[in-house]
Nucleic acid binder design. Structure first.
Lengths: 160, 160
DNA sequence: GTTTTTGCAAATGATTTGCATGGAT
DNA sequence: ATCCATGCAAATCATTTGCAAAAAC
């Protein structure tokens, strides 16, 4: 019912040279209201207001908002991707392996995870940490600027 | 060429009441030899020895080995799942966003990620931390033993 | 009015499943 | 001889893509 949004989505869309559509605003409102929701779930709720909205459009919108940095995407194992609007900081997540519930964990210092997650009520059994960045070769290739031949390396390992 | 394995896969399979097949041994040998490989890549290499081996079988084998805890599964964003045989410890991973190369990061103390990843050569830009465990409700439900009605909760959030 | 977005349908990629045969114990 | 594991085909699930119609600027 309430379309109370904390952030000025309309303004942010303008800033990013995106058109302000009711679909986008609806998706953003739902993601803000229900953090850690899947595209499917977001579509379902948004459709209460916009019955014509399709899941595919939600995917397109979310992908775009994600590349703009307006939403953050979490990909827990054995679950579709989940989305949230809290993007500025580097907080982490605790996922319940029983029910799938996701909790924010406020313990980050910059981009580095803290030693002990202090703000969760879950009994943590596993910590999956994935650092992302550039390896030496790719950093070198990047500073060499220009898109030269894609750097490749031996052995059967996959991309990205 | 070399089928030199470090671990006694045959023994471990026996321990877990699994039949020792050349397919399983081949998959395990490949995962051990090329850590952080995808199911597809593993199948490709294993097929050099066992041309009849299908990707689907590799998936089945890996899924089983994973539930047994004999292999660990990593799921980087925008990549199929990767597998490795290093399972005993709680090391982490650094993924290059340029080429997809995966590096082990030895910095864990128990199940808790360390403050600074010391053993990587990558320039880390993002730390995705996902703690997994049981939330209060699920822990309570678990101690109440028996599989009662599946605990559910409101709002559109997904499972597992 | 022009260009971006949406809606719809179909395609894709990763992974799972059902079932009959082959193989390990 | 029994029962599990593999091979094959088809199904499923999450997500992406192509294109024409609709909406925003």
């Amino acid at each position: 019912m309430s379309t109370t949004t904390t952030r000025d989505w309309e303004g942010e869309l303008h800033t990013h040279a995106r058109r302000v559509t009711k679909q986008r605003l609806a998706v953003l409102a739902v993601v803000e209201r229900f953090p850690h929701s899947s595209a499917e779930a977001i579509a379902k709720v948004a459709r209460e207001t916009l019955p014509a909205l399709t899941v595919q459009s939600v995917y397109v919108v979310l992908a775009d908002l994600h590349t703009l940095g307006m939403v953050r995407r979490i990909e827990p194992p054995d679950s579709p991707a989940l989305y949230e609007t809290r993007t500025g900081d580097n907080h982490h997540h605790a996922v319940c392996t029983g029910c799938g519930r996701v909790e924010d964990v406020d313990c980050a210092v910059g981009h580095t995870p803290c030693l002990t997650p202090s703000s969760t009520t879950m009994t943590i059994r596993i910590a999956d940490v994935l650092y992302r960045g550039l390896c030496r070769d790719c950093e070198a290739a990047q500073s060499t600027e220009a898109t030269l031949a894609t750097p490749n390396f031996p052995s059967p390992t996959n991309q990205r």
